[in-house]
């Protein structure tokens, strides 16, 4: 079991920065106010995400996992500490970090292809290049036939695949996902999880995914960050030493699940 554990069970995790790290979160705390009372969404959090990592963050609600994602996305600035992407402090959102939200967040007034094209237009790419890339990424998520439809005409699973194509078409080195499969049914979720792993292997981006499902974290991630609440902390980062595609019924898989659950129970 010790092989699964990457960090000691005690105190906050602090990792030394390495050359390979794409994202570096160092000593980050976020303070916010609820009804006049200050409260820590995150306290002394440090994590590093390598350029080919698939990091999954699990934890109870209130553990600050969405805050952590918002910091890396640039939607939020830390009260203390630094958040860096490839050595540069993150000051604002940008196309070098794709974001996929739980509620899809597609533009309802744009067709599927226009949604995917949005980021390419922002970059000022010529029309021919845009069309080529849109077609490529729609094919990648198997939605070429839905190109001219509006989001309201699509099922939840299709919408989320459009959201993935829209985020990935910019070819960001990092993809951030905030409970991306929480709003779809179980069968669609399983299919989308497999597709995500394939996309990740094919496109070679780093991933940071938030979930409240231990199974999802272990099924997808190369690393699982176990978080606890009040104040929000990263308690442990566990390696998932399993090859893809993963077999949910294998003893090794269940062993990792157990390790993550134990870590959650211990710090919850």
């Amino acid at each position: 079991m010790d092989a699964v554990l990457d960090a000691p069970a005690s105190a906050p995790v602090s990792l030394a920065p390495t050359e390979r790290d794409l994202v570096h979160v160092e000593g980050v705390s976020v303070l916010y106010e609820t009804k006049g009372t200050p409260s820590w969404a995150l306290r002394d959090v440090s994590i590093a995400i390598g350029a080919h990592d698939f990091m999954c963050a699990v934890g109870p609600s209130g553990c600050g996992k969405t805050t952590l994602l918002n910091l890396i996305a640039g939607f939020l600035q830390p009260t203390r500490g630094t958040v860096q992407l490839a050595g540069k402090t993150i000051a604002a959102p940008g196309p070098d970090r794709g974001v996929v939200f739980q509620e899809y967040a597609l533009f309802p007034w744009l067709t599927v292809s226009a949604n995917v094209e949005f980021g390419l237009r922002c970059q000022g790419l010529p029309a021919a290049e845009r069309q080529r890339r849109v077609a490529e990424y729609l094919a990648l998520v198997d939605l070429a036939r839905a190109a001219d439809r509006y989001p309201y005409e699509l099922s939840g699973g299709m919408r989320q695949r459009v959201a993935f194509a829209r985020a990935l078409v910019n070819r960001p080195p990092l993809l951030l996902m905030d409970e991306p499969f929480a709003a779809v049914d179980a069968m669609t979720r399983a299919a989308l999880q497999d597709e995500l792993v394939k996309l990740w292997q094919h496109e070679r981006f780093a991933s940071f995914l938030i979930t409240h499902s231990v199974d999802e974290a272990v099924y997808l991630g190369t690393k699982v960050a176990v978080m606890s609440a009040h104040p929000g902390r990263v308690e442990r980062i566990l390696d998932v030493p399993l090859a893809y595609p993963r077999d949910r019924n294998s003893p090794r898989y269940r062993e990792v699940i157990k390790a993550v659950e134990d870590a959650l129970a211990h710090h919850g």
Binding site: A73, G74, F75, A92, P93, P95, F107, G119, R121, N170
Partner: peptide, 19 residues
């Protein structure tokens, strides 16, 4: 969330307003 989407896709202020 829509505004955040647009900004993370690289939208400038004018794109954000118009589109």
């Amino acid at each position: 969330t829509l505004v955040r989407s647009a900004r993370s896709l690289g939208a400038s202020r004018s794109t954000l307003i118009l589109r």
